[in-house]
Amino acid sequence: MSLLLPIPAVQALQPLTILVAAPGISGVIAKLEARLQGRRGPRILQPYYDLAKLFAKESLAPAGVNAWFLAAPIVAMACYLTVPLLIPVLTTFGLPWGYMGDILGGGFVLSLGSFVVAVAALQTGGPYAQLGASRSKTFAAITEPVVLFVVFSVALVTGTDLPYALAATVRSSASQIVRPAHLLAAGALFLVILYETGRIPVETHTGTNEFGMIEEARSFEHSGPYLALLKWGSACKQLVLYTLLINVFLAPWGLASSAAIGSVALAIVTLVGKALVVGAAVAVIDDSFAKLRLFKITDFVSAAFLLSVVAVFTLYLGGG
């Protein structure tokens, strides 16, 4: 009989895992990308050092901004850490706050986080930050239909749109995994995640080429601990989205089915391992495709839209 963790502790462990592991995942992806390009690359722990350095620096704000500018990184971080309460990060069973919101609710919270950052960037008067804010909102509006259709297909498959319910459905039988609707919706979600985390073919993740900048340009005017929070927040958002893809759609196995310490610890390790596999796939894509011109992003999104619409179509025909 192993020791049981109190449920609130498991609940708190979900955002904590994301918070602690997120920069590491980014570090591994950066390292792997560099190795694939034949470079040695930064240390895997480099994102943690960056964060430590930024937290130790002073922070400056542009003239004329109000408290919103300083509050935005904190609010965004809070948003990114709320979503792990709603999705199955570590456990197969719903935790007390797990049914607070569905997939759509999680999507709203993520968009809220990105919205407050965009508004803060708009306040600065810096052209690059404003450009990034404007672009990120424009393209977010284009990807929104894809997310909606993915949610529709989840709703048609499970009869609800709770992430826990879909994960349980996928686990239930092999016929649930091979059904086209599931695979297509997962594919569409993966493309959306490439967009949302600012990866090739949508955006170069590293580098300062302002022509292609969308999400990365928004934080240009922040500095010190606030910049650190923004960077940490976008790493967290990336891991949250990977978790959503892995633990709800692709591979909801290895989650803890009880609050026993051993199985929860195993779930943490499995989550990090699975996120690294997704990260490796993303790194390979980053290295093997060219960045799309800004006005070609609609073509990319139309592919994701196609996948999600076909998913819903096949479901309506009863064959999904």
Partner: peptide, 16 residues
């Protein structure tokens, strides 16, 4: 909805 079996599901995936 009724879930198609593994054979039907895979055949549908190939058709997709």
């Amino acid at each position: 909805q009724p879930v198609p079996g593994v054979f039907e599901g895979s055949a549908n995936v190939v058709a997709v």
